[in-house]
Design a protein around this nucleic acid. Sequence first.
DNA 1: ATGGTTGGTAGCCAA
Length: 264
Amino acid sequence: MKIATWNINGVRARIGNLLHWLQESAPDIVCLQEIKTMDEQFPRLEIEALGYHVETHGQKSFNGVAILSKLRFDEVNFGLPGEGEDDHARFMEGVFSTDRGALRVVSLYLPNGNPITEERKFGYKLRWMERLERWAGERLALEEPLVLAGDYNVIPEPADAKNPEQWVNDALFQPVTRQAFRRLCALGFTDAVRNVTHSADAYTFWDYQAGAWQKNNGIRIDHVLLSPEAANRLTSASIEKHVRAWEKPSDHVPVAVELDLSAA
DNA sequence: ATGGTTGGTAGCCAA
């Protein structure tokens, strides 16, 4: 079972790249972030034509997440509980049936949080991370394969940036941000790429500006966290870096994991 | 070097 996540930075601007990548990479389940469109304008027909079921949680202009799946959805849940007035579309969960029982997959788009001097930005990010920790802790109690995939907007460690010193005043690399991410992981999640990909320069994002891609000035902020029941079945993880060199690329690239969920 | 680039859309806004 190949499960991937990709911050596509506007699904309508990127539909050609998305269709090409779906055929090339052939993931079973895809978590998209920053679709930047309402559900009615999501290009679902082209994607369904490739054999995917499509569930979206869209919003006008900003944010928005989606899950594409070759498996039928048993259940879909939208939104992260814990803050009533939060109207950002940043979180959805799909539930699927496999030979090993239920599989839960989350597509999440964690708030960027910049600038750190603005409470409505950075405070929102930190509260969102607390809400995610609470939600994830409750889900872990189910003891099922659970995949939390998405754009976390967190650089976990200095090794996850080409130039860590460039990010010291950025919300993605604040000590308190990194601490919240470690707290989430410490509940029992495995950072799939961290544990499988041992190469340096394992980045998932390169800014459009200042020739970041050409200089390989990247950061690793798109993560796939696995519950113990999923981590036990992890066979590979990869960053599909070549997609960043395509025409009109997203500033993020797909990250994929392979789980062996065949019957015991 | 407080720059520069992109998407969606009329908010210089978010990233």
